[in-house]
Amino acid sequence: MQQDNLIEQTGSREMINAIKANDATALQMLYCNNYPKVESYILNNHGAREQVKDIYQEAFIAMWRNIQLNKFNPESDSALQGYLFRIAKNKWIDHLRSDARLNIVPLEDNGEESGDINGALNNDESEYVLMVRNNFKHLGERCRDLITKFYYNRQSLRQIAEFFNWTEATAKNNKYRCLQQLRELIKNTKS
């Protein structure tokens, strides 16, 4: 049994490493395999199909964030999937509570772990990250591509330079300029 647990933990570590590396296959499998369970929960708790996507995607990003920031280290794949489901469930419960018109008591509302699940960043930090996300789409396509390749796909400056037919120094300067543009966009949003 201990050996089984060890094997399961090893698999789980591989999954966590894949998530940290933004491995598209692992993320896609995790996303697709867990969507039906969340959908079923929301539909059975006063929700509509069109509300599921937003709640689930926010939950998925929250899970990803907490893994990146080492706030959650699951001991098994099922713990990871359970964690994703609990975040989605809590987000749905928060949504129901925030809509005073509904006056609904959600099913299975035991308020578990909501603090821990949402606690990777404080409110100001979360707000800033959200502004980054919202303004990112206003950057030019080349900037978005460059930033994504470097920070999300973890490509080296050399690979990026080759892709754009630049020198490494140009790639480095352009990356800084693109982030400066993003900072400006955020500053203008705030002011």
Binding site: L27, Q28, L179
Partner: peptide
């Protein structure tokens, strides 16, 4: 926070595709 935000923006684009 800036790096985290751009990573999340990229993730969001990916998960739209997954969806």
């Amino acid at each position: 926070l800036l790096i985290l935000g751009v990573q999340e923006a990229s993730l969001l684009a990916d998960i739209q595709h997954f969806h």
